[in-house]
Design a protein around this nucleic acid. Structure first.
Lengths: 255, 255
DNA sequence: AAACACAAGATTGGATATCAATCAATAAAA
DNA sequence: TTTTATTGATTGATATCCAATCTTGTGTTT
């Protein structure tokens, strides 16, 4: 079993990517120590890990806060993500066998079903996981870790914006990536990946102010109680109502 | 000023990439605490940072050691580095202006002079820095940090191998990358980057045994005394004598 | 009333001492 | 010689304490 501080860092990470802890939220040592019932030092170690991961920012003598990336940094993160996924696509275009393509298609199918069922939260998660699966097929653990970190940071970014996503578009993109990749159309795949991420960034309107709806204690309690474990269930306020027909749950950017 | 643990992590990182601390070397908390004259807690925090960076490995109840990457991991690191630099090259092929090209050429010229002067250590460092400069020109801080971490890990890898490098070949590669990039030959640039890294990996013969020549105390003392500060001066046992003519310092893999 | 200065309180960064759990290595027994 | 116990050392973690610094609230001055 790994260390306590790592476990706490994992929980904090989950809470952040679940948008239960929003950017700018103070992560006080004493408060967290009480919540997790550990000493302040363990909390500090966890916060160091979060800061190294880009999810928290530690200011000397002021404490740690959930990171509040600038628009500039948001762009850089998406650029980096695009670069990584394009590179992986290039590698996979040579090396990916039928089993790999099958796995990708199966995943897309699962997401399609989630959308049909109107389960936006699940669809959101599956949409993210597609990218993770994509990179995992490269069989490069180092690359996987880099990519996972970037994905976490993009997930954090979503707390800062008031846009939502069009799951169908994203899903179609995934489907097309698979098709193009299988037919060896690498150039088109890479353009699609670029466009895919741009379509996400385009909707970004950074509201510098984010209102925390939960105190850290409220945000973290479910994880401690074990009420939230493996299956990610993001807490997202949907700004547009989710699709009612059950077949095409389009959700568009608001404002 | 940043935290003490960060400063110590930086020193340890420097000591590792300078090959003063070799893979497998035990990083005992008590010992390091005495060396740096801080408490064990600060050391532990520094070690956490190193582990997050992939330079150290923490085993529960056993302590921290300088990372000893497997051959598999070494390959993955180089693959990731190739992927990143190819991606950056693709970005730069659009966006890099004359000033950027001038900066690259100037750097290569400096390395050429170092080689002519027979200063292998400096040439080595400059050779590394070319890659860093290359990525910096992308103006993406997120990407820079990812790349810097990968470079640190490749530098660590060099402690594990008995091969040395042919500076001229690498320098020529750098020169050619610039030329090709300027002429918009992106495809060739990317092939060259791939070949460049492969030529490095090809010489890898991992000796699982590495003999520490310095105790941690000996390895770290110079940094504490401030005798080694900014300019990296790697301590490398050259397995072949450095070029004597002054114009072509070829150094080949041994054994 | 607004601006500034200053003191009190709170928080972080770090030190020290202490304890339990675990690993490593030696010593003892079969 | 192999196996088992014991001992010692190291890590993971806690509690307590202290100094430096930041925040805040108050009071004074203009």
């Amino acid at each position: 079993m790994s260390s306590r501080s790592q476990a706490i860092a994992d929980i904090l990470t989950r809470a952040i990517i679940d948008h239960r802890l929003v950017p700018g939220c103070k992560l006080g040592e004493r408060e967290l120590a009480e919540i997790f019932k550990v000493s302040r030092i363990v909390i500090r170690q966890a916060l160091i890990r979060l800061a190294d991961d880009g999810l928290a920012q530690i200011e000397r003598n002021r404490g740690a806060f959930v990171a509040r990336p600038s628009m500039q940094e948001a762009m850089e993160i998406y650029d980096a993500l695009t670069l990584v996924e394009q590179g992986v696509a290039a590698q996979l275009s040579d090396r990916l066998g039928p089993a790999g393509f099958a796995e990708l298609r199966q995943h897309v199918e699962r997401q399609r079903q989630a959308i049909e069922a109107g389960n936006d939260a699940l669809a959101d998660v599956l949409g993210q996981e597609f990218h993770t699966l994509f990179v995992r097929l490269s069989r490069n653990k180092v690359m996987q870790e880099i990519h996972a970190q970037l994905v976490r940071r993009t997930t954090l970014l979503r707390s800062l914006i008031s846009a939502d996503f069009d799951y169908c578009n994203l899903l179609d993109d995934h489907q097309r990536v698979i098709d193009l990749l299988e037919r060896g159309r690498l150039k088109q795949v890479m353009e699609l990946i670029d466009a895919h991420h741009r379509s996400v960034v385009r909707g970004y309107i950074m509201d510098r102010q984010v209102f925390p709806e939960l105190t850290p204690r409220e945000a973290l309690q479910p994880y401690i109680d074990g009420k939230i474990d493996k299956a990610p269930k993001p807490l997202r306020k949907k700004t547009a109502e989710s699709g009612g027909t059950g077949t095409h749950g389009h959700v568009h950017a608001t404002k």
